[in-house]
Nucleic acid binder design. Structure first.
Lengths: 323, 323
DNA sequence: ACTTGACATGTAACGCGTTACAACATTTAG
DNA sequence: CTAAATGTTGTAACGCGTTACATGTCAAGT
C-alpha cells in the first residue's frame, strides 16, 4: 500500500502539493498536477479514508436509528440512502430491536465521531437522553419529537388521521376501531386526539376496547381481527390502522373469517405503500420518500451551516377496495 | 473535546497506559486503572473512532452492496445487520440502483479502508472487476458467483427450483411458465437448467414465450399476467416466480382478471417471506435470515483468519392456497 | 525600475490512538 | 540470596492526510 508520503517523495513535491492535487485545489500548475497524477496511477495509490476522516473530523457517514427494518420504512430507508449517497454520504444502519441499550450504540458512535449525524426512524430511548447527545451532532427524526433540537419530517399526523376518519364516516361507518402504533409516541398521541375530536364532532360511540396501541405488524393485525371481531356482541365496522402492514393483516384474516370487505368491515391503511396498492387497500398517502429526502437535507443544512431547500409535502387519501 | 493525551498528562501516566486501560489490557494495576478511569469520566472522555480505525487499520464496518432494498432482501438485511452488530460490526448500505458506476463506490470504499469487508446482495458489475477488488478485503455474496474468491451463501437454486416444479407437476399442472430474476445471473441459470431438466423428464411442453427473465417486482408480476394470460390461445396454467413479490403481483392481477386460483392458474413464489404467508401463496422456503448469518460469519472468518462455524441450511416447500 | 499582487509550493504542526520494544520493579523459584 | 519470571509503565515511532502560514517567483501596474 502506497501512501501520500511516498507519492510526495517520488514526485519530488511536498505532501501539501500532493494533497492539493487530490482535492482538486486550483493552486497547482497543470504540469505538476499531471506529474503527480501519473505517479499516483503507477503506484495504484488511493488515499486512506480513515486518515481523511481523522484529519477532517468528519466521516461522511450518517447513522439511521431504527427498531428494525420493515416494509413501512423501506421507502424511507431507500430514499434516504439514495439521497445521501448523491451528496457523498453513506448510511449506516443501527437496529435496536427495541433494546434501548443497543440503540444507544448509534448515539455513542456519533459521540465517537464515527458518524456525522443521525436520522431517527423509530426510537426507544428517553427524550432526555436523546437531548444530551444533540451536542455531538445534528439529529433529525422521522417521527415527531418534543425536543426543539430534533427536527421532524413526519407529516401532520392529526390531519392525516382526520382524513381517514372523515372518509369512513362519510361512507356511513360509525363504529370505528383504531390500531395505533407505538404507545406514547407523538404520532400516536396526535392520532388519538384526532380520533377523539372526530368522534365528538359526529357524536359517535367511543369504545375504549376498540382502540389498541402497539400494533405494527401483519401478525398483530391478524390477531386484532380475532380479538375485535371474534364473538363480541358489539363489533366495530371500520378499522383505521397504524400502517399498511397492519391493514394487510386485518384484511387477510378477515377474509379467512368470511367477513365481507368493505360491507362488513372497512379497512384503512396508512402510508399508501406498494403493499396497499397490491392488496387494494384504501390508504392515507404519506410521502415517505420525500420525507426521507427532507430529513437528509435538514441534516446537511446543519452540518454545513447553510440552508438547504426543503420540499413542502402533501398528503391525501387513496381509495381502494376496502372502503 | 478531550483526548487521550490530556488524560495521560492529567493522570500522570503515559499514553500507552491510558490506552491499555481503554482496551482492558490486563497489564495495568487496579489502582492505576481506577485513577485513569476517574479522570476519563470527569473529562467526559471518549476515544475518537476515526483515530482508532486509522491506527488499527480497520473500521469494524461492513458494506452491503445491493441494487435497492426490497421486501425480499429485508430478512437478509435485518439478519445481517443484527448479527454483525452482535459482533461489534456496523453495516453500511450501498444501493446502486442498477448503475455499475454507483455500485463501484462500495468497492472503492473497501479499497480506501472505509469498510473492512463486503457482502453482495445483488451486483451489476463484471465478475472480472469484482475479482480485482478481492485483494482489498473479503467479499461474500448472497447470490452464487463463479469466482473462487467470492464465497456464496445462497441455497442451491437448482434443487430448490426442482422442488417447486415437482410440486406443481404432481398436482397435475403441465403448462408451466417461469418468471426468472436477473438475466444471466448464476441463480437464474440454475433455475433455467432445473426447468429444462424437469420438462425433459416429464416430457412436458416448453414454450420459450412462457419464460421471462428480469422479473422481480410486484408490478412486473402484474404485467406478466397481462402478457401471458391476456388473449393468447395456448396459456400456461402454472407460474413459478423469481420471488414472492412477483407471485403477489401475479395473484392480485389474476384475481382482478377473474381467473380462479388455483383452478385456472397455480402460482408458486420463492423465499417464503411474510408476504407469502399473508397472501396465502405457496412458496419455496428459503432460509434467508440464516444465509445472512452465514455470510457474516464467513466474512468474520476471513477477517480474523479463524474458522467460524457455519450452519447447514435446509429448504422446503410451503404449500398454501395458490396450488 | 519598483511595488503589488497572483500564483505555486513548501514547512511543520495537527488530528488521536496503537503498539513494539525497552526499562524498571517486584515476586518467586531454587 | 540470586537468577529468572512476572508484572507495570514509559518511549517513541507509526498509521495518513489536512491545513494555516510562510516563502519564493514572476508578471502586471505605475
Amino acid at each position: 500500500m502506497s501512501n501520500l508520503d511516498q507519492i510526495a517523495k517520488l514526485s519530488g513535491f511536498s505532501k501539501a502539493t500532493v494533497s492539493r492535487v487530490l482535492n482538486h485545489s486550483p493552486h497547482v500548475s497543470q504540469a505538476t498536477r499531471d506529474k503527480i497524477t501519473n505517479i499516483m496511477e503507477e503506484l495504484d495509490y488511493v488515499p486512506n479514508g480513515n486518515a481523511i476522516s481523522l484529519s477532517k473530523g468528519q466521516t461522511q457517514q450518517i447513522g439511521m436509528v431504527t427498531e428494525g427494518i420493515n416494509e413501512v420504512m423501506l421507502p424511507f430507508l431507500n430514499s434516504f440512502v439514495e439521497t445521501a449517497s448523491q451528496h457523498g454520504y453513506q448510511t449506516i444502519i443501527y437496529t435496536s430491536g427495541g433494546d434501548p441499550q443497543k440503540e444507544l450504540q448509534a448515539f455513542e458512535d456519533m459521540r465517537r465521531k464515527r458518524v456525522d449525524a443521525l436520522v431517527i426512524s423509530t426510537c426507544v430511548n428517553d427524550l432526555a437522553l436523546l437531548g444530551s447527545y444533540c451536542k455531538y451532532g445534528p439529529i433529525v427524526s422521522w417521527q415527531r419529537m418534543e425536543l426543539p433540537e430534533i427536527a421532524s419530517v413526519a407529516m401532520n399526523q392529526y390531519d392525516g388521521y382526520m382524513l381517514g376518519l372523515e372518509h369512513v364516516i362519510q361512507r356511513g361507518y360509525t363504529r370505528i376501531a383504531n390500531a395505533f402504533g407505538r404507545p406514547s409516541s407523538m404520532n400516536t398521541l396526535s392520532r388519538i386526539n384526532a380520533y377523539e375530536d372526530m368522534m365528538r364532532k359526529y357524536e359517535l360511540p367511543v369504545y375504549p376496547h376498540w382502540s389498541r396501541t402497539g400494533v405494527y405488524s401483519i401478525r398483530q393485525g391478524e390477531q386484532l381481527v380475532r380479538e375485535l371481531l371474534g364473538g363480541a356482541e358489539e363489533r366495530p365496522n371500520a378499522i383505521l390502522c397504524a400502517n399498511d402492514l397492519v391493514a394487510a393483516g386485518i384484511v387477510s384474516e378477515a377474509r379467512r373469517q368470511q367477513l365481507r370487505i368493505p360491507e362488513d368491515l372497512a379497512v384503512v391503511g396508512f402510508d399508501n405503500t406498494e403493499l396497499a396498492h397490491t392488496l387494494g387497500i384504501t390508504s392515507v398517502y404519506n410521502p415517505i420518500a420525500d420525507q426521507a429526502k427532507n430529513a437528509f437535507h435538514l441534516l446537511l443544512s446543519k452540518l454545513k451551516g447553510v440552508e438547504e431547500e426543503q420540499q413542502i409535502l402533501q398528503y391525501c387519501l387513496v381509495q381502494r377496495a376496502t372502503t
